[in-house]
C-alpha cells in the first residue's frame, strides 16, 4: 500500500472527475484511491449516482465533455494511463483496459453481424484477424461458432452479454472493467455469465473491477469490495471482512438491505435519498441519513483512514460496534 508504484496491477490515486455546472463545479468522483493486483477482483458498489460508473469511464478516459478528469493518477502495470496521448489511449482501450458494458440491451451495433463487430475491434488495433480467431473467442464464452453470422437482434440477452465479454477479452487485456454486466439478465443466466467472465479472468490473470449494486453477487464473485457514496469511496476492504464487520454505517445498511432466508418478505431499505452532488452537505455526505451522525460529521468531511492493512474507511466513528437496526 505504501509503495504502490512498485507493485503490478492497477493503482488509482486521488482520481477526481469534475462536471462544471452554471453555478458550481460538481465532483462526480471525488479523490478516489484504490489498487487492484493482477488476478484480483474488486467489486465497486453504491447507489445510482454514487460515481461507480463514472470511475469506470474515467479509467478508460471516456468522460464526455464538459465533464473532465480533474486530477489523480492511474497506473496500470507501470504505465501511466493519464499520461498517454489521445491516440495512445485509444490503442490502449481493449488491448490494455477493456470495458464490458451492460450489453444485454444494445451495446452491439444493430446493423453489423457479431463477426463484423469482432473483426472491427481486432483490425483497429492493428492486428490481422486469424481465420479461427472469432470462432475461438465465441467458444471461450460458450457460444456456438455460428453465432458469428447473426445480428444482435437475433441473440438473446444472455448471448449478447457473452458476445460483449468475448469482444472485451479479444486482446487479452490487463484490466477488465465490467459495468453491471448482468443487471438485465435473469439469475440463472447471470450466474452462467459471471462464471464465464470469472474463468476468463483467471485464465488471463487480469485485474478485474466489477461494478454493480447486487451485494449477493459481490459476495460470490469478488475478493475485495469498495463502497462508494456521493462520488467518494467510503469503505474498502476484503469482501469477507467488510461483510463480517463493516466499518462504515452506510456499508452496514447496504449489507442489511440484502434479503435473507430467515427474514423473507421483510425488506430493509436505507431511509432518505442520495444527496444531489451539486448540493452536498458541508461535512460527511452520508450524515443526513446516518443514525450515528455526530456534530463533527455535519461539519468536517471524514478523511479516508487505514484501519488495517488493505482496509480503509472514511468515517469519524472511531470504533463502530454496529448493531443491526432493531
Amino acid at each position: 500500500m505504501s509503495a504502490p508504484a512498485k507493485t503490478g496491477g492497477l493503482v488509482v490515486e486521488n482520481l477526481t472527475v469534475a462536471y462544471p455546472l452554471a453555478t458550481a463545479t460538481v465532483l462526480g468522483v471525488d479523490g478516489v484511491s484504490f489498487t487492484v493486483r493482477p488476478g484480483e477482483r474488486l467489486g465497486v458498489v453504491g447507489e445510482s449516482g454514487s460515481g461507480k460508473s463514472t470511475t469506470a469511464l474515467a479509467l478508460l478516459r471516456l468522460i464526455r465533455p464538459p465533464g473532465r478528469i480533474a486530477g489523480g493518477r492511474v497506473m496500470l502495470n507501470g504505465t501511466d494511463l493519464r499520461g498517454l496521448d489521445e491516440a495512445g489511449m485509444r490503442a490502449a482501450r481493449l488491448r490494455v483496459v477493456s470495458y464490458i458494458p451492460q450489453g444485454a440491451m444494445n451495446s452491439l451495433n444493430p446493423v453489423k453481424t457479431v463477426a463484423a463487430q469482432m473483426r472491427d475491434a481486432i483490425l483497429d488495433h492493428g492486428e490481422r484477424v486469424a481465420p479461427d480467431a472469432i470462432a475461438r473467442a465465441l467458444e471461450g464464452v460458450d457460444l456456438p461458432a455460428g453465432t458469428a453470422r447473426l445480428f444482435p437482434h437475433q441473440l438473446s440477452g444472455g448471448m449478447k452479454q457473452r458476445v460483449c465479454i468475448a469482444i472485451g477479452m479479444l486482446l487479452r487485456p490487463q484490466l477488465i472493467i465490467a459495468d453491471e454486466p448482468t443487471s438485465a439478465l435473469d439469475v440463472v443466466t447471470q450466474r452462467q455469465v459471471m462464471g464465464t467472465l470469472g474463468r476468463l479472468q483467471t485464465e488471463t490473470g487480469a485485474c478485474l473491477i466489477l461494478i454493480g449494486h447486487d451485494m449477493g453477487l459481490m459476495v460470490q464473485f469478488v475478493d475485495r469490495l469498495a463502497v462508494m457514496y456521493a462520488g467518494r469511496l467510503v469503505e474498502l476492504g476484503g469482501i469477507e471482512e467488510v461483510f463480517a464487520a463493516p466499518r462504515h454505517p452506510y456499508t452496514r445498511m447496504l449489507i442489511d438491505s440484502v434479503p435473507t432466508f430467515e427474514n423473507r418478505g421483510h425488506f430493509v431499505g436505507i431511509p432518505g435519498t442520495t444527496p444531489s452532488l451539486a448540493r452536498l452537505p458541508p461535512g460527511c455526505a452520508f450524515a443526513p441519513r446516518c443514525r450515528f451522525a455526530m456534530e463533527l460529521c455535519r461539519q468536517v468531511v471524514p478523511p479516508s483512514r487505514e484501519v488495517a492493512p488493505g482496509r480503509s474507511v472514511a468515517c469519524h466513528l472511531e470504533d463502530v460496534p454496529l448493531a443491526p437496526p432493531a
Partner: peptide
C-alpha cells in the same frame, strides 16, 4: 446516445470507423 456508440469507443475503434 446509444450504448453501442459508447461501447465502440470503449473498444478503442478508430474515430473514422
Amino acid at each position: 446516445g446509444e450504448d453501442y456508440m459508447m461501447f465502440a469507443d470503449a473498444k478503442g475503434l478508430r474515430p473514422r470507423r
